[in-house]
Amino acid sequence: MKLKKEQLKRQLYRDRYLYLLFLPVLTFFIIWHYIPIWGARIAFQDVKYVGKNVWVGFKHFKVLFSSPVFFRVFMNTIAISAMKIFLCFPLPIILAFLLNEVRSHNYRKIVQSIIYLPHFLSWVVIAGIFISLLQAPDGVINQIIGFFGVKPISFMTSTKHIRWVFVWSEVWRSIGWDSILYIAAINNIALELYDAATVDGASRWQQAFKITLPSILPTIITVFILNLGFFMNAGFDQVFNMMNDAVINHVDIIDTYVYRIGLGKGNYSLGTAAGLFKGVIGLFLILSTDKLSRKVTGEGVW
């Protein structure tokens, strides 16, 4: 026991400069991450401008859960997230398959370089691009549908279309980028498998479904599970930059609600409570998907 203590002391002394080097990083994490976590306690308090805040238990949560606005916001979050997973999840997989079939290396590289680009643009820029793209009547989309005799649609202010605008702009931004993981997984498949299949006379389709798909299935499952883990983030930056008064009831999500109620209207406790509620659900989703991932693929999310 004493020997161990002695050894530890020596080790600590030996590494003293490493600890010193780590100190700024540690300080940073405590200040920028852990103080705000502690600060989230105002969800359980009434904020007083003079004197100390008063603990009020779950008062703000009760207000939140009985609020029809929050209910709508919650349902919007789920709806938008679900719509996004429905399209943004499978499309990159299909794209990876298609890219894999291209025989010209250069052609594939050029296509890839172009389709990754939107991922690096901010949502402010993308919102600007899409607003102009979807403008009625002179945006390109309205010009195209006008060519087929459809009357111009004001997509950005149409409650019927706005969620699809979110979904498709997300696809535009992420389809190329999200395909990278699958492309890498496909590249890792042993070529001998394909050679053997070709000798046996398997067609390209058969090879895709009997070799490629099963080989990259673990990647597909991991990505899907991760998507579920981040389900409550319906895409703050996107919604925040693309929404307008005409469609707000259809697109307002928890994160935009937190901003509007909390910082916009100064209802700090209620906003923090909403954020915390979302955080707890998110945490639960991530931990359970991690468990699920370990069960299904044998590997955790981390």
């Binding site: 989230a40 937190v258 923090t272």
Partner: peptide, 12 residues
């Protein structure tokens, strides 16, 4: 996987 959130960040 867990953060204080927008408003605590602002108060910090």
């Amino acid at each position: 996987i867990f953060e204080g959130g927008l408003i605590p960040d602002y108060f910090l």
